[in-house]
Simulated scan of single mutants.
Amino acid sequence: QLTVESKIKARYQCSIVDFFQKCLDQKMDTHEIASMINCSVSNLRRIARKYHFTFHQPEPTPMLSQSKEFLKKTLNIDNFLSRQWTN
């Protein structure tokens, strides 16, 4: 009897983590992945925990130095600590 993990490795010829990452890169959610590999979502999440993988990867936040408010020449709430207090 094949496990879900062995099915993924055999069918997709990659590691479990690589498979999960490829699915996320394709914007698939856990329900789509589970139905694709014919398992339950809870089983999918259990396998992900086993490999220390998380499906909820937040978008990177932009750096403050890229903010228009931060780059203004006048003092404001975003840039007052980065400016000189004396001339």
Rank of each mutant, 00 (worst) to 15 (best):
L81R: 13
V4F: 01
L71D: 00
V41P: 00
T54K: 12
N38W: 09
T30A: 09
T61S: 08
A34M: 09
N38Y: 05
E32S: 13
I47M: 01
C14I: 01
Q1T: 12
K50I: 08
P58D: 04
S42W: 09
Y12I: 08
A48N: 00
H56R: 09
C14L: 01
T74F: 04
E59A: 13
Q84A: 12
T54P: 02
D18H: 13
P62Y: 10
M36I: 00
N76L: 14
R46P: 01
F80S: 05
Q84T: 14
H56L: 10
E59T: 12
L64D: 04
E5Y: 10
T61V: 14
P58G: 02
E69P: 03
R46G: 00
L64C: 08
K22D: 06
L24S: 05
T61Y: 09
L81P: 08
Q84E: 15
Q57W: 08
K68I: 07
K50C: 08
E32N: 11
N87Q: 11
Q1Y: 07
C14R: 12
N87P: 08
L2F: 01
N87T: 11
R45T: 03
S35I: 02
F19R: 11
E59H: 14
L64I: 12
S35V: 03
Q21A: 14
L75F: 11
K50W: 09
K72Y: 07
T74Y: 10
I37T: 04
I47W: 03
K72A: 11
I77P: 06
S6W: 01
C39S: 05
L44E: 01
Y51H: 06
R45S: 03
K72H: 11
K22A: 04
R45V: 03
T86E: 15
T3R: 14
H56I: 13
